[in-house]
Design a protein around this nucleic acid. Structure first.
Length: 210
DNA sequence: CTCACGATTAGA
DNA sequence: CTAATCGTGAGA
């Protein structure tokens, strides 16, 4: 199925990624999602951004993962479903973090979407995120882009291959242009602190600042 | 029921 | 550097 969208002056086109794409290991999937385009249709208009930074969370053996040691709670139970669903959770009582559930049913992995490069709907993003002083701060962090896109807990459990929110396939990023580092904000996670599970596009200005 | 805290951010 | 601000989940 081909999706074509006229977004301002940019023609965005490509096939919508279907469920099968997400049934992979999160460590494999996280770098594969770089360069792909996240699209959200809202009543106010179309929002779109290129994924430029991700992290993989590996599940029951990953001390940084919400599903570490097979923890199963009302908040994280969606992680145990078949890949391709959206896992949103609130943090600090202020923000929302957005993940895509990865892998097969009962393997509770996720890819955390940390930053986007805005492609369409920047005016709408500004409306949603009035405290962003510069347009460069609308999407360059995990809770910045969710604020700008109006992501909240109503997205929890939705399909990422749906009608109003989905990802458009694009050519993959060459491995020489993908930087790998340890993940951010998980200093509590023992040896997993140092695991190289954060991926971003080299030299992209919308990658979150350390 | 209580309470400590977080896959963050803006601002001093 | 710290405050903001509350859903969540572990424990009593």
């Amino acid at each position: 199925m081909i999706t074509e969208l006229l977004a301002g002056r940019n023609l965005i086109s490509g096939p919508k990624l279907q469920r099968d794409f997400y049934l992979k290991n999160s460590k494999y999937l996280a770098p594969k999602l770089l360069g792909k385009i996240l699209v959200l249709r809202r009543p106010q208009g179309l929002l779109a951004g290129r994924i430029v930074e991700t992290e993989a969370y590996l599940g029951i053996d990953d001390p940084a993962s919400h599903s570490y040691q097979a923890k199963y709670t009302p908040r994280n139970k969606i992680l145990y479903q078949t890949g391709g669903l959206i896992y949103v959770y609130s943090i600090y009582g202020l923000y929302f973090c957005f993940n895509i559930v990865a892998n097969k049913k009962q393997i509770p992995q996720a890819v955390f979407i940390r930053a986007l490069e805005p492609l369409a709907g920047i005016d709408c993003m500004r409306q949603n995120n009035k405290k962003a002083k510069y347009s460069g701060n609308l999407t360059n962090g995990p809770c910045r882009w969710t604020k700008s896109f109006g992501i909240d807990k109503s997205f929890l459990g939705e399909k990422i291959y749906g009608k109003n929110i989905f990802i458009i396939n694009q050519k993959g990023i060459a491995s020489c242009n993908i930087i790998k580092t340890k993940r951010i904000g998980i200093e509590y996670a023992k040896e997993a602190r140092a695991w190289p599970l954060r991926f971003y596009i080299k030299n992209n200005p919308f990658v979150s600042k350390k």
